Computed example of a mutant assay.
Amino acid sequence: MLKSGLVNKIIAGASILGLFMMGGLASTYVTVSTPVKFVTSAYTTTLQSIFDSIIPGLLPLIVVLCVWGYLSKVKRNYFAATLGVTIVSLVLGCLGVII
């Protein structure tokens, strides 16, 4: 089994399965929406409906990718990432940009 590389294929498959599971968890538990509205003389539309027409769940995807980029490229400080997401979400929530 070791010479044929079967163990390495099993480990690679388990890693891919784990990434799929983490993607599913992120899309299920991360919720971000925006109440920002654009009013014209003809109609009123929200920024969230524009994002959802492009890709449903675009804002949560952006949040997850930003956190992943921070953790993989900048440094692996999970406490700072959690604190940063909390502070940014509180500030944007108080300003009324996100819900």
Rank of each mutant, 00 (worst) to 15 (best):
L2A: 13
K3D: 13
G5R: 02
I10D: 02
I10M: 11
I10K: 13
I11H: 07
G13E: 05
I16C: 03
L19V: 09
F20P: 04
M22W: 05
M22C: 12
M22P: 10
A26P: 00
A26V: 06
S27R: 11
T28W: 08
Y29I: 05
V30F: 07
T31A: 08
P35L: 01
K37D: 07
K37T: 10
F38G: 11
S41R: 00
S41N: 01
T45L: 08
T46R: 00
L47F: 12
F51L: 13
S53W: 11
I54S: 13
I55E: 15
L58R: 04
P60G: 09
L61F: 10
L61D: 04
L61R: 05
V63T: 14
V63K: 02
V63N: 07
V64W: 14
C66E: 09
V67D: 06
V67C: 09
W68M: 13
W68F: 15
S72V: 13
K73W: 03
V74W: 07
V74M: 08
V74I: 15
N77E: 15
N77V: 04
Y78H: 10
Y78V: 02
A80V: 00
A81G: 11
A81R: 12
V88T: 14
S89G: 11
S89V: 15
L92F: 13
G93R: 12
L95W: 04
I99C: 08
I99G: 14
I99M: 09
I99Q: 12
